[in-house]
Design a protein around this nucleic acid. Structure first.
Lengths: 214, 214
DNA sequence: ACGGTGTCATAACGCTGTTATACCTGAGCT
DNA sequence: AGCTCAGGTATAACAGCGTTATGACACCGT
């Protein structure tokens, strides 16, 4: 009996199921990212994972379950992109952090358009995310923006806004930009400059009225 | 060499092909609107149109062709929704017309989420719109906004902006709102009020500096 | 009147997601 | 220890999908 996961290895170690789950998900994520949503077939994923189609049913309960897992994985990657963008931003309280979050969001959309389309565009035919999964993704995304907005309001670098509503407005603006870009609706020329300008739009009305110093 | 642009009609009247094309498209549009993108099957559409699956190939060249026609039809309906919203708006030069266009856009997305997902969400598995079709849709949508923005700039009701860039910013903002709403990412409570606030966001930085008389 | 052309319905191919079936392993109980 | 039982696995089948080849049919220009 091989102690490792290389061969079929029944259920030797207690975490074996998680391992296989992770492996199948990894195969599916790569197929999605590299070849698009229509490359997600149970047979192919099962074969590349070294098993039969049944594996997707035992591990995920079917294709909708796998899609839900990919949906969650997409939000995980989006969160990572936003976190990475925050790392290169000024400390909390600076409105630039809101811009940075938008940049990270946009970068994710342009880097992973297939994931983005699964998350925000019905790219997997019959799939609608489970309420719970959608709520988690929503909170994970919006939460970071609310936090950054609240820090700006606390610091007085933004005024006259509610953190939640300001964050949602930022999300809407950033998402519209990313979505239209992913769908090829914005001209290629000057895209980046336009994006920078757009990301600043929601903040204009809430900058402190004092004369700026440079 | 056929003197007319239409292909030669197997049936008596010369416009018969166009008629069938329209009929098939109508069946497909209804299936899409009422049951969603995954209800679009060649066999079903052909049967409901009173023919065989081949009809979609002779009239549209295959499913991508039919999808392209539905994509164009979606933009036609979006244009109609925006035009209808303009009819109920103040005369040209009033920034409220830009808000009205946004309302029409949002109303279309909420009324026809399946069309919206085909247009902006890769809802038909293998389908990417033809460059030309996408360009037409883009122009038809953005053009109305550019026109309204230019009228405001000419009238001085908006200042310090470029019509094209302002219009694109309005589109991005409105589209982000509509897209997140269609995908269930915005809480139901207070949706309409939030939408109204969001639609006004791009205009804030370009309102004339004079003290308002309201 | 006749070949040519394009449309049509039928049938087949390979693919899809899903489900039923049988097998086989490992755990737990007697 | 031997046995039963639950559960993961592979296989095969089913219905449906988009697509394509095939043959019959109606119209066109000659």
């Amino acid at each position: 009996m091989t102690p490792l996961s290389t061969t079929m290895a029944r259920v030797s170690s207690p975490g074996a199921t998680d391992d296989r789950r992770r492996r199948v998900l990894e195969v599916a994520a790569r197929a999605l990212a590299e070849e698009g949503p229509h490359a997600l077939s149970l047979r192919r994923i099962a074969a590349e994972s070294g098993g039969s189609t049944q594996i997707v049913y035992t591990l995920f309960g079917g294709k909708p379950g796998l899609a839900d897992a990919l949906y969650a994985e997409g939000f995980r990657r989006l969160g990572a992109a936003m976190a990475a963008a925050l790392d290169a931003a000024p400390p909390p309280g600076d409105p630039e952090r809101l811009i940075a979050l938008g940049r990270g969001y946009r970068a994710f959309a342009l880097d992973e358009p297939a994931f983005f389309s699964v998350m925000f565009g019905r790219a997997i035919p019959g799939f609608t995310p489970a309420r719970a999964t959608r709520g988690v993704g929503r909170s994970a995304t919006l939460g970071r923006v609310v936090e950054a907005a609240q820090q700006c309001l606390d610091a007085g670098t933004l005024v006259g806004a509610d953190a939640e509503q300001l964050a949602r407005t930022c999300w809407v603006t950033t998402h519209g930009l990313a979505s239209l870009e992913v769908n090829g609706m914005l001209a290629a020329e000057g895209r980046d400059a336009f994006a920078e300008a757009v990301l600043r739009t929601p903040l204009a009305a809430h900058l402190p009225p004092e004369p700026g110093q440079g």
